[in-house]
């Protein structure tokens, strides 16, 4: 893949694979795969359940150890690092999750402070970053609230603030809107687009929702059965009509041509969301 951005490559996966036995002993995971993400890009990974898209994402910060291959983030092969250096590298890679994964017994401010505290940052710096990040996601007034008092969309905003606190270069987003309603999804995607534009953070986003990927991403990797079967460049939401992505949209009732300005009508790929 050519590089989109003049700033170079943020993430390069080279021949990574991961196999593990899933439910019923069926092997799931990722077949040897390459992935290049340019600096400043928003890269989507889309596919059905079990396609290996979350596994591929989790290989980027080594939450999954690959069976083979290289994971290069900002020029550093993470698979060769000592545990200490891997932890340092992870501090520059933010991550958000479908179910937010906030600490429930800590206030919003303490959640955002968490990655800075464990990195041993000074109290003054922690205060500054917590204030700045909560202001960015529009939740300054909730600093002393607990996660249980927030809506799903607010929880995900806190998670974004937490991920941004250490000023990461890269943000990994694992189905970040799949537990949210369409309107909340839209405003959350605006926040993610803002993270990318204002701070130049490279984002890799896993989703099974076509509308999410179409709205946000510069490029998309389409996965099936552990392989990237297609890489598509989106031009302002336009999907090339001869792509697998376009065929899926046709097959499952969406339109492949129009850039679907609202684009949140439930389509087949969103059916998977029903069981979360």
């Amino acid at each position: 893949m050519g590089t989109l951005s003049p700033f170079g490559t943020a993430i390069r996966l080279h021949g990574v694979s991961k196999r593990f036995a899933g439910i019923d002993g069926i092997e799931v995971g990722v077949e040897p795969t390459d992935l290049d993400v340019a600096q400043g890009e928003i890269h989507g990974i889309i596919g059905f359940s079990g396609a290996g898209k979350s596994t591929l994402l989790r290989l980027i910060n080594l939450l999954e150890q690959p069976d083979a291959g290289q994971v290069v983030v900002h020029g550093e092969d993470l698979t060769t690092l000592s545990p200490d250096r891997l932890r340092a590298a992870r501090r520059r890679i933010g991550m958000i999750f479908q179910h937010f994964n906030l600490l429930h017994n800590r206030s919003v401010a303490d959640n955002v402070a968490f990655p800075l505290r464990i990195a041993g940052e000074s109290a003054a710096r922690i205060r500054d970053r917590v204030d700045a990040c909560l202001a960015f996601v529009g939740l300054s007034d909730k600093a002393s609230a607990y996660p249980a008092q927030l809506s799903g969309g607010q929880k995900q905003r806190v998670a974004i603030a937490r991920a941004l606190a250490p000023e990461p270069h890269v943000l990994l987003a694992d189905e970040p809107t799949s537990a949210l309603d369409p309107r909340t999804t839209q405003s959350l995607l605006d926040v993610l687009a803002d993270v990318n534009r204002r701070f130049g953070v490279t984002i890799v986003l896993v989703s099974h929702e076509m509308s999410v990927v179409r709205r946000l991403c510069h490029r998309v990797s389409v996965m099936e059965a552990g392989r990237v079967i297609e890489r598509v460049s989106l031009d302002a939401g336009h999907i090339p009509p001869d792509s697998q992505l376009a065929r899926w949209l046709n097959e499952f009732g969406g339109g492949s041509e129009s850039a679907a300005p609202q684009g949140y009508a439930p389509h087949a790929l969103a059916r998977e969301a029903a069981h979360v």
Partner: peptide, 23 residues
């Protein structure tokens, strides 16, 4: 997932115990 989030943020096993599990 909460433990995993801490791992992804670069927490050591000791930090996971004292700042995630026990809390």
């Amino acid at each position: 997932g909460v433990i995993e989030a801490a791992e992804a943020m670069g927490a050591t096993p000791r930090q996971i115990v004292t700042q995630v599990l026990l809390v």
